[in-house]
Design a protein around this nucleic acid. Structure first.
Lengths: 350, 350
DNA sequence: CTGAAAGCGCTTACAG
DNA sequence: CTGAAAGCGCTTACAG
């Protein structure tokens, strides 16, 4: 950090007070909207503020009031993830969170970090932010302790993610289980019988795991068991989706559909299938999860599960503000919507 | 904004001082890395800091030091723009700016605003940020006055955009003119002769205008004049690109190539062409600008111009920090790269 | 409705 | 190398 060049004589509330012929306390009261200030006085102060182009110093204000009017957003990814691209789904969440903050009159501090970093003790402790929104993809079991520590320290935080029993924090997430079930039921209805699942299916990645569980449940209800051989681990990147398909194919597995745990995985899978001469949906039906903007532009357009990021952003900000106010906040789950596009229309193409 | 519940007894530098058996001033010195502190003393202080999990209060620190260690990013869009989606190109810039800030030890405050808002007097004046990065799409002539006011107030700011003579601020932008020329030369080399341009070509949108000028220059060098009838206004959205193609077609214009001033416009154009039964690139060659992630996933993959957002982010942050230090900073232009993909390979398909 | 005063938690010149 | 003290610019209880 750097020593900035000196400001010329900064305007303070004392200057306004002088100009308006009142005390500095009254200026402060007027600007904070106190009902105790005479209308006429308020007007004079307002005029002085405009003439001198005065702005309240937020550092002083925050120091005195003990909160900052700022929320922090921590976007984290696995250390393995490609540094240069951010998952489009998180980007979309970022947009809606920014908007929700603005609506509530809060500023938003944004940061990308590796999970390995000491983020649990950052913004809130230094008083730069009143609370933290956590958003990212990573090994849940590896960072659960950090969440616990956060909560113990009394840091206000909410997280986008799976809603689990017994978790140390407040989470807002979508109904991953229902999403997984809907996709799978749809693929079954297309006549598919051997449906591969691409994505880690373990408690390390609870969101993917819930999607997997929904998938398994739908299969069972159709009288089919989930076949372990048809599951391949993948994290949420195209490369990983590509490799997962290669793995299944190399093992000689046969499948008529692929349910990818995220759109990025699905897009990678699509390329791998094409590279092997398999056409989607004629040879293999394909579906993803997230409905990122790209999903409707790939060829064929991708069937996927829409999570309402606008609503999600609002809910996250809302929950965090209630936490800051000292209210009790429950984790919550958002409904999802199946978006059927051409990539899964297997029946039609036969 | 909201009254947060009261913190239990906050730990201050006085607590650390007490525990380490030194004065509070020495604690402050040690934590700011002053060379005046004895090694042994420093260690004791460090130990106390860790035991008590102390963090310097940034509000107090910023107030005293008169700068905040925070940069602000203002993303703005035309009021007409769709609220829910952010241009992917800006998103990519956001990612690289965030990273560059983190590398320099600065925090980043992010905000989306309409141009109509009074953003020119926000973060910097309230001391929440030491400087501002401006990033967006909008009518330059409409906001130039705001830029001027910003500069007059002494607010440190840099802008992503066209590098123009006589502009009131520091801009970092890519070589739009060269980009436009490269695309057009490439389309000419494919044998195209009637190349439409989609995007506003006026000083209101200097970046698009520079791309247009590069296009016109390439045409002239090939002995062709830019045909006014083949230009259609479009802002940087898919919808707008779609409509621009419809406009040209409705007018009965004939063209064998389309150069869209942005990828979003190009993608909309692609859909409009398809809707009219025109195939890309067989009937019409197509190229865009930006190389957003989606560009390589549309069908056919889109020829476009890559702007190096990683480097751009670094340069923006760098320039702003130099400004904050009081150095003289010049506007700068980044080179661009033509990415040839299938959408423009007209010759091959005939 | 208004003013004088204390104090938020630091940083840094000043004196040793 | 260290400490006592002033002060950054506000907000707010207290007294009127």
């Amino acid at each position: 950090m750097v020593q900035p060049v000196r400001e010329k004589n900064k305007i303070t509330s004392f200057d306004i007070a002088h100009r308006a012929g009142v005390s500095q306390s009254t200026v402060s009261r007027a600007l904070r909207g106190s009902p105790l200030v005479n209308e006429e006085t308020r007007r004079r102060i307002q005029a002085a503020v405009e003439e001198l182009n005065y702005k309240v110093d937020k550092n002083a204000s925050s120091l005195r009031r003990k909160h900052s009017g700022t929320l922090a957003l921590l976007l984290f990814e696995d250390p393995t993830a490609d540094e240069s691209h951010i998952n489009p789904f998180f980007l979309s969440m970022l947009g809606s969170i920014t908007r929700a903050c603005a609506q509530e009159g809060y500023d938003l501090l944004v940061s990308f970090q590796q999970l390995s970093h000491d983020w649990h003790a950052d913004y809130a402790d230094t008083k730069k932010a009143d609370g933290i929104i956590l958003l990212g993809y990573g090994d849940y079991l590896a960072y659960r302790d950090k969440l616990r520590k956060l909560a113990e320290q009394g840091t206000r935080s909410v997280r986008w993610g799976a809603v689990l029993p017994d978790q140390p924090d407040v989470s807002i997430g979508c109904d991953n289980h229902a999403g997984g079930r809907m996709v799978t039921e749809h693929l079954l209805a297309q006549g598919c019988r051997r449906i591969a699942f691409l994505g880690e299916a373990s408690t390390h990645y609870p969101e993917f795991f819930a999607r997997y569980l929904g998938y398994a449940e739908a299969l069972e209800q159709a009288g089919l068991a989930a076949d372990q051989a048809l599951q391949a681990d993948a994290e949420s990147t195209e490369r990983s989706g590509y490799e997962a398909v290669e793995t299944l194919l190399a093992r000689g597995e046969r499948f008529d559909a692929v349910f990818a745990a995220s759109d990025l995985i699905a897009i990678g899978a699509l390329q791998a299938l094409n590279a092997r001469g398999l056409q989607v949906p004629r040879d293999v039906a394909l579906a993803g999860f997230d409905d990122i903007p790209m999903a409707s532009f790939v060829n064929p357009p991708l069937t996927t599960v829409l999570q309402d990021t606008q609503q999600a952003g609002r809910l996250l900000v809302d929950a965090l503000l209630r936490l800051i106010r000292g209210e009790v906040v429950e984790s919550a789950m958002l409904p999802v919507t199946l978006k059927v596009r051409r990539s899964s229309l297997w029946k039609q193409e036969r």
